[in-house]
Every structure is written in structure tokens, then in C-alpha cells.
Design a protein around this nucleic acid. Structure first.
Lengths: 230, 230
DNA sequence: CTACATTTGCGTATAATTAACGCAAACTAA
DNA sequence: TTAGTTTGCGTTAATTATACGCAAATGTAG
């Protein structure tokens, strides 16, 4: 006779932000038991009557106040039966992007802290969250090269040099500025605005916008976004 | 006060096979209630003490006797809370490949039937399995173009024309036979055997083998498999 | 035995794309 | 004015993709 299933299901979210020319992740500090504190990905158990998607949104809303520009399911972690030492918990992980440039993260609630961590300065996290994060970063890197999600990490209007920098730093690759610009522009998915950068150094730079409508049109016609370097 | 979580977790598997120049999926016939019968993807509830991976393997073993050559997690379906009308069930879907060319599928057990279905002749399936399958096919198509998983659908030794055919039929694209051959051969991941095809029509064709060791070596050096057509 | 149909295996010319640079324009600061 | 900095637009060579041509090696029909 089979025992009744006794497995919990949770969602966890990796929220990526890009600021100060670096990739960041949003972590929250959780209290375990009476003393132990750990940084962890935002997340929690799924409620009986909510979709996985809604669960992620709810948890993010409860724990932070970020405004997502992109979200996608990443992977379901359920091979390590003891990933949570208390109970068996299977976690459906998501990753999301935000425009971190003009974003205030929520003040402390429930004695929990919320903070941006630079991607190369991540502490030891709760559960298998370091593993989840690793997979998230891999996916982000891959996705950046074949879908225009880089724009979701930037402000609506951005400089070409920001975009270039974002690709360089996240993918950890060198890149020829001129070829990069030429390639992106050739796709015709950017819109030039009349505005200029407020930064007062060097030649003034135009602000650009990503034209999502145009992108969708092109996709219909079989267009395929791709950025790759040596 | 929150109610105790009452969600079940299942795994489902899409098993792809390639034979007679066509892509097939393995389905099983399930009985619901007293009369309704539905074709469905092999799968079932995860046990308390088994990993997700093991659950898939066990279910496939119970319901079929296929020998997998590749398996990967596909997606977790949990947004439609009523995808199973009886209880809330979240399903972690996997997709797998087999060499269907010399494979006998299991005879009926538990009054269940197991059968190969051609990909364009799939009936209406149980739960949201048509949706799962759709996503699986998309993933298979995508993955074929950037990882050498096509070989996992063929016999250990295969003809170049088989490989070419596989790509054409699964991706539903035309392809120049000569350029395709040139490209694959240029990668140096195939091994020529001394054997020839038993088929007695036209010029005798050499049998080839996929050299996985060599492929892994190349990957280490930064090699990137890719097959794409206009 | 010969001509023909069929499929394999190897080439070659041309078009398209990528990679590697040069450099002037437009500003600020000194 | 001059130096420093960043933007924006080109040009050329190397690589890769595309579109074919065609002979080799078999079986088969007459």
C-alpha cells in the first residue's frame, strides 16, 4: 500500500537587476528557528487555489516591492529529497528581470531584510538556493544571446553604451563596440529618441528605446534575434 | 490562517521515437472512472522518498519498457489549477528520446495499452497532455538545432541520409543534402565505420557513428554545435 | 551486356555575414 | 585653444552559408 503523498510545493524567484555596470540579485534574509539567519531567494509555499505564476507574484509582492519587466519559469528542483531539512519540498524556480536603475526596494517588513547582491558576491544561501541561482545565471546568459531581454534590465530609454556594457558584463566577454552597434541597429528594433544623455562627458549620446511592437512584427516574419561574440 | 497545502505532485514523460521517417510519441491508454478511456502521457504521482528523476524512470518502467537515450526536464505545469478535475495536481514534465528502430514496446499490462503515435496524428489526450506535448515538440525542435541529440533518436550506427531525413522531417524544413553533410562532417564528431548499409538501392552508403567522446572534448574547447536552415 | 534509374559522396563559385579596424564629430575641462 | 573622452559612421579582409554541378557505385530492365 502506498503512503499518502507528503510533499510540499514551493516557488522561488531569482530577481535580476542591472545597475552600476553590474548584475545584481535580490535576496531576503530569513530567520530559521530561533537564531539562524540566512539569505535566501524570495519565495514560499504555493497556496491551494493559486497558480504557480500567481504564487511567485504574491511572494515577491509580500517580500519586496519590485516591478517586474520579465518573468519565466526556470526549473523545478526536486531531485535532492533533503534540500529542505525539515520537510520534503519541491521548488519551482522562476527568474525575473527588473529595471533596477530607478527602483527603491521595500523597507524592512517582518524583521526581514531585502537587499541587492552583486552576482559575484553572493553569500552562502539557504537550502539549495546557490544551485538555483547558478542555473538562473546560466539561463540568463543563454537567453540574452537569442532573445532581446537585455532591454528589460534597462530603463525604457537607454544609451547604446549601457546596452553594450550590459552584454559585456553579464556575458563576461569582450565585444567590439562598433560591430555590436551595427548589428543591433541592423535589426531595426530600436527607436531613436530626440533626447540626449544627461552625462556630460564626451560626445553627447542619443537615448534609444526598444520597439517591442516592431520586434513582434519581425518575429511574425521569421526574424530571429541573436547576439554572439567570439 | 492558512489551510494546509493540499496539492499533489506528478511527473509525466514525453517519449519521442523516430522510425519510418517520422516522429512518434509513446502514449498509454488510461481508464478513468468506470468507462472513460483516454490516451495519456506515461506518468504518475511522485513518491515521498524518490527524486523527480527516479519517479519518471519508475513510471516509464512500470508502463513501458523503453530504453532511454536522453532525458531532460521540460516544464512544470501548475498554472491551471483544474488541469486534473479530481484534485489539484502539479505536473513536472520530462521529455526523453529512444532509439525506436529496434525496440519492442511492452505488451499490455493492467489492461493498459501502450502505443506509438505519429506526431501529426495525436488524439485528444487526458488532462492538459496535448499542451505538454506541444511544448515538448517545440523544445525538441529547438534543441535539435543547437545540441547533437538527433543521434539519440537513431541507432548507434546510421546512414547520413537517415540523419538528414530526421532533421528534415522533425524541423519540417527543406535542406540541401550536400551542405548538410559538409557541415556535420566539418564538426568532426562523426566516425566512419567500415560497414555499409544493407539497403540495395543506389550507391552503397557507409554507416556512421556519433563520437560522443570527441564531442565532449570539443565542447571543452568552446565548440558549439549548430544546425540551421533558411 | 548495356543503358538507365537511383543514391552517395565530393567539389566549386558566389553571396552573405562576421570580425577587425580607422577615424572624424561633438562635447567638457583646463 | 588644446587635450581628453565618448559617440557614431565607415571600409576591408576573412569566414561562413548558399546554390548548385557532377562523377562514383550500385541494382535493374531490356
Amino acid at each position: 500500500m502506498e503512503k499518502l503523498q507528503n510533499i510540499r510545493i514551493a516557488v522561488d524567484a531569482i530577481v535580476f537587476g542591472y545597475k552600476n555596470n553590474g548584475l545584481y540579485v535580490l535576496l531576503i534574509e530569513q530567520q530559521f528557528g530561533s537564531s539562524e539567519k540566512y539569505w535566501a531567494l524570495p519565495g514560499g509555499l504555493v497556496q491551494n487555489d493559486e497558480s504557480l505564476n500567481d504564487a511567485v507574484i504574491r511572494e515577491l509582492h509580500e517580500e519586496t516591492n519590485v516591478q517586474l519587466t520579465f518573468m519565466e519559469q526556470l526549473y523545478t528542483f526536486g531531485d535532492d529529497i533533503h534540500r529542505d531539512s525539515r520537510n520534503r519540498v519541491i521548488s519551482v524556480a522562476y527568474y525575473a528581470l527588473v529595471d533596477a536603475s530607478n527602483l527603491e526596494i521595500k523597507a524592512d517588513t517582518d524583521a526581514e531584510r531585502v537587499q541587492w547582491f552583486k552576482i559575484d558576491e553572493i553569500p552562502s544561501l539557504a537550502f539549495d538556493h546557490n544551485l538555483i541561482l547558478k542555473k538562473g545565471i546560466e539561463r540568463l546568459k543563454a537567453k540574452l544571446t537569442y532573445e532581446p531581454i537585455g532591454f528589460d534590465l534597462l530603463s525604457e530609454e537607454f544609451l547604446f553604451s549601457d546596452l553594450e556594457n550590459l552584454y559585456c558584463t553579464i556575458l563576461e566577454k569582450e565585444i567590439d563596440r562598433r560591430n555590436f552597434r551595427k548589428k543591433i541597429l541592423s535589426y531595426g528594433i530600436l527607436e531613436e529618441t530626440e533626447k540626449f544623455s544627461p552625462i556630460k562627458t564626451g560626445r553627447p549620446a542619443k537615448l534609444f528605446k526598444f520597439n517591442k511592437l516592431k520586434y513582434n512584427e519581425l518575429i511574425q516574419k521569421g526574424f530571429h534575434f541573436e547576439i554572439k561574440f567570439a
